[in-house]
Design a protein around this nucleic acid. Structure first.
Lengths: 226, 226
DNA sequence: ACCTGAACACCGTTCAAGT
DNA sequence: ACCTGAACACCGTTCAAGT
């Protein structure tokens, strides 16, 4: 008698179904027992393929991060970074329920590390010293991750809460005198996040370039005094 | 016979002990039963003061956010924003185990909303239109939250993992050819995050100012053509 | 080698009963 | 009004036993 409707249990199949569950009903809906059930197996059977639930989540994240396009050929480092980080953003937004976990499990796999490596490579290729490159990397990473988090946690849509969390509405805000917040709600509701994200990215990179120029200039001046 | 060692159960006392538990052993160590035990009471007694565990966490976050100093008087809006956001950063870092929850529970209380209101106020006071102000707000917020998340999740300290998560070490990175990451580890280990955060903030605000100037200039030019 | 069944030590939450 | 006790419907994880 063959197995019901399921192929044999493999790591790939486990990750695929786990991701589907997370995408559909949130990270908190993933339990070993339910994941096992969806795979036609007891929850405890999963421990023969992964040592823990956390390791499954890490593996799901690693698999998703493979979707980030790192092989981007652009003339300038600014354009290359912009496209890599846009790809990271799209990858994260494709799985909104996974975003908080992605933000807090930074170096749990080689896939996420490869993304960092590439960004550092681009910055180094632009001629930045170790410390400046690390600074730029950290600034950009904070922005991308922070943007994804605030967007998927529904920061802007203050009164259009689609998430499970209760959210403040315009009346409540107004009754506490938070008038700016109230008046900005329509603007926020009609917001193009893709464009805003890119604008912010440009602002940051402009700032980084300016800062880099200041450092170079200072170095040249100090050289003159020697 | 008086109660053992405990004053009567109040919302304040519940929040105080809950925060202590989170600070000491992480958010995941907080359970209704354990929190009740620390308060000298059954876990179920807490439901007479808060409707759910989530509402307790929201209330803890709201209480912590009150530590952010919003009453800052500075001449320029850039300086004012810098000090407000530095205060937000310090407040978040004072409770590292709460940072992910703070990042994902954005508008769960008036306290967090008041911070947003103040930032929008400063940006509006600087003469920015609604849309530009919202853009600046979103950019800055993403940076502050993203920075706090990556820092407390141990992004930079790739090989100095103090957290529970297993982290990639230099040998593993090197064996996968991630040489930039390996070579930057010493720089990252000796990093002054406070200074780096402020530098990134300056870079962003420089970028925002430049962007704002471009917009004004375009508006003036368009006006000439009328 | 891979999976099951039972067990252990937990969870959040509800609700009747006590005081 | 506030708390307890018991119960319900879950958890992650371990491990002997089956095949």
């Amino acid at each position: 008698m063959p197995r019901m409707s399921s192929s044999p249990l493999t790591r790939e199949r486990i990750l695929r179904v786990a991701l589907r569950m997370i995408d559909a009903n949130g990270l908190s809906s993933l339990s070993m027992r339910k994941l096992g059930a969806k795979l036609g197996v007891e929850g405890t059977a999963l421990y023969h393929h992964y040592p823990s639930k956390d390791s499954i989540i890490d593996a799901v994240i690693a698999q998703v991060m493979e979707d980030v396009d790192l092989a981007i050929d652009e003339a300038s480092w600014v354009r290359r970074l912009r496209r890599i980080l846009q790809s990271q953003r799209q990858t994260m937004l494709a799985h909104p329920n996974l975003v908080p976990a992605m933000a807090t499990h930074p170096f749990s796999s080689m896939e996420t590390a490869r993304l960092s490596e590439t960004i550092l490579e681009v910055l180094a290729g632009a001629g930045l010293e170790d410390e400046t490159a690390l600074h730029g990397y950290q600034t950009l990473r904070a922005y991308v991750i922070g943007y994804a988090i605030t967007e998927t946690s529904g920061l802007l849509a203050a009164s259009v809460g689609s998430n499970s969390q209760r959210r403040l509405d315009a009346r409540e805000l107004a009754s506490h005198g938070l008038t700016r917040l109230v008046s900005i709600i329509p603007t926020a509701a009609a917001y193009d996040h893709d464009e805003d994200f890119t604008r912010g990215l440009e602002a940051i990179m402009t700032g980084l370039q300016t800062e880099s120029l200041r450092l170079s200039l200072r170095a040249v001046r100090d050289g003159e005094n020697d």
